[in-house]
Amino acid sequence: MTNSMTLPAISSYDSLDQYMRAIKSFPVLSAEEEYQLATSLKKENDLEAAKKLVVSHLRLVASIARNYSGYGLPQSDLIQEGNIGLMKAVRRFDPERGVRLVSFAMHWIKAEIHEYIVRNWRLVKVATTKAQRKLFFNLRSMKSGKSASLQSEEVAHIARELNVKPEDVLEMESRMSGHEISLEGNADDETEDVFAPISYLQATQAEPSEILEEQEVEHLHTAGLSTALAKLDDRSRRIVEARWLQEDSSATLHDLAEEFGVSAERIRQIEQKAMKQMKGFLTPA
């Protein structure tokens, strides 16, 4: 797809500011426009449709890339890598899933940026526990000053916010002040709790896939859920519960296909129909 499309490249502009102004000129697509373009790409391999989907989301990439400016890498390179992730997302996007491209693409954009940082940033390991990971990826943003030493009140506040011990805060502050950190962790570490910081580059919020899942579950747990589920037939109710309402892990289409003796595509169709019915049940008349 990328070889057949001409997209705005940062190198084509005299400055990053010019590039930012240029991408702001591309229109934001409505849900209907996005669906039509994505359907055209999926069914007809329409590269012009793919281009429109990509350029309409270049601002999203630039916005995400800004969150990684603290790692000392060129902003233009971060954006360029994020654009690669965006193009991968557009190719894999399924408009029938009922999720907007902006939500789906965030994961792919971040994944490419993470990979770029791994390839270009060499650090050494400092954290081995979950508490230390949380501290490492939040301490810098929670400090009142980048270089100032932490005061006792600030230590106590950070400890309360992150649910860790004050001495853990002080230890991590000391480590971060005197050592570099390994983004990829130690491949020779045989312990189960291996530290791989690249998975936590942005600790201020969950990954997009987790956010989407939480939003879906929260929506389904609104008032009237039990009534809405009760109105479904047994098979549809089982599929919805297995796919969306299990807290530990959701069943895959193939798992349910094997359970009911039908194809995975048939399970997907039943799921979509059931979800649509439930939205109708849950929407006030």
Rank of each mutant, 00 (worst) to 15 (best):
H157L: 12
L183Q: 01
L162V: 03
A196E: 00
E171W: 08
H221K: 09
P166S: 15
G185S: 01
K165M: 13
E180K: 15
L201C: 01
G224D: 05
E192W: 07
K231L: 05
L201I: 13
D188I: 01
L162T: 03
Q215I: 02
L170N: 04
A187L: 11
E210I: 12
L201E: 09
A187Q: 15
I211H: 03
L220N: 01
E192G: 08
L162Q: 00
A196G: 00
K231C: 05
K165Q: 12
V164T: 02
I211C: 10
E216W: 12
E214V: 02
L220K: 10
E167N: 14
E207T: 08
T191E: 11
L170W: 01
P166A: 05
A159R: 06
E180N: 13
L229I: 06
E171F: 10
E161G: 15
S177P: 00
S182F: 02
E161K: 15
E184W: 15
F195Y: 14
A228Y: 09
E171A: 11
D189R: 14
A206M: 03
G185T: 00
L170F: 04
V217R: 14
Y200D: 08
S226V: 03
E167T: 06
P166C: 04
D168A: 09
H219W: 01
H157E: 09
E216R: 08
I181F: 04
L220R: 05
A223S: 05
E167W: 11
A159N: 07
E180T: 11
A223C: 07
K165V: 01
E190A: 13
H157K: 15
Q205M: 08
N163K: 13
L162D: 08
E213N: 10
E184L: 03
P208W: 06
E180I: 06
R160I: 04
Y200V: 02
E171C: 01
L212Y: 07
T204C: 02
R160A: 01
A203W: 10
Q202K: 12
E180A: 11
T191F: 09
T204E: 14
M176I: 02
E214K: 06
I181E: 00
S174F: 13
L220Y: 14
A196H: 10
A206E: 02
S199Q: 07
E190V: 14
A203T: 06
L232H: 08
T222I: 03
I211A: 01
N186F: 00
A187M: 13
N163Y: 12
T227H: 11
Q215S: 14
N186V: 00
F195M: 10
A159M: 09
V169T: 06
T227W: 14
E210T: 12
H179A: 04
L183N: 00
S182E: 00
V169F: 07
V169S: 04
A230R: 15
N163V: 07
P208A: 11
H157S: 05
E167A: 12
E210A: 14
E192L: 14
E190M: 11
H219M: 07
K165G: 03
G185Q: 02
H219N: 05
E216H: 10
R160F: 03
A206G: 03
E214Q: 13
T222C: 02
V164F: 02
E216Q: 13
I158Q: 04
V217H: 07
L212M: 09
E213Q: 14
L232E: 13
R175D: 07
G224N: 11
H219Y: 11
Q205A: 09
K231M: 10
Q205T: 11
V169K: 03
L183A: 04
D193K: 15
E207G: 04
Q205V: 01
H157W: 03
G185D: 04
